[in-house]
Simulated scan of single mutants.
Amino acid sequence: MRRSKWSSTVLEVFCALVTALILTWTIAHVVPTTVHTPAQLRDVAFGWPFPWYHQDLRRYEPATFPDDMYIVGDRVDPLPTTVDVFALTGDVLVTAVILWLVVGALIALLRPRITRALDARRKAHSRET
Rank of each mutant, 00 (worst) to 15 (best):
L21F: 13
I22V: 05
I22C: 02
T24G: 04
W25I: 09
I27K: 06
A28L: 01
A28S: 07
V30E: 00
V31M: 01
T33C: 01
T34L: 05
V35A: 12
H36P: 04
H36V: 08
T37E: 00
T37Q: 08
P38H: 03
A39R: 09
A39I: 04
A39M: 05
R42F: 08
D43T: 12
V44G: 04
V44H: 06
F46N: 03
F46I: 10
W48L: 13
P49S: 05
P49D: 04
P49N: 05
P51F: 01
Y53H: 08
Q55G: 10
Q55A: 09
L57C: 09
R59H: 06
Y60A: 12
E61I: 07
E61M: 10
P62S: 14
P66N: 11
P66I: 05
P66S: 13
D68T: 14
D68C: 10
M69I: 09
M69T: 14
Y70P: 00
Y70G: 02
Y70M: 09
Y70L: 00
I71A: 09
V72A: 13
G73Y: 13
R75H: 15
V76A: 15
D77W: 03
P78I: 10
P78K: 13
P78H: 10
L79G: 13
L79K: 13
T81N: 00
T82I: 07
T82V: 13
D84P: 11
V85F: 09
F86Y: 10
F86N: 11
F86R: 15
F86D: 11
A87C: 02
L88P: 03
T89A: 15
T89Y: 02
G90P: 04
G90D: 00
G90W: 02
D91T: 08
V92A: 04
V92I: 08
V94I: 09
V97P: 02
L99I: 06
W100Q: 11
G104D: 02
G104S: 07
L106G: 11
L106N: 05
I107E: 09
I107F: 12
A108K: 15
L110E: 12
R111S: 06
R111V: 04
P112L: 00
R113Q: 11
I114S: 07
I114M: 08
L118E: 12
D119N: 14
R121T: 12
R122C: 02
A124L: 00
H125F: 01
H125C: 02
S126H: 04
R127P: 00
E128K: 14
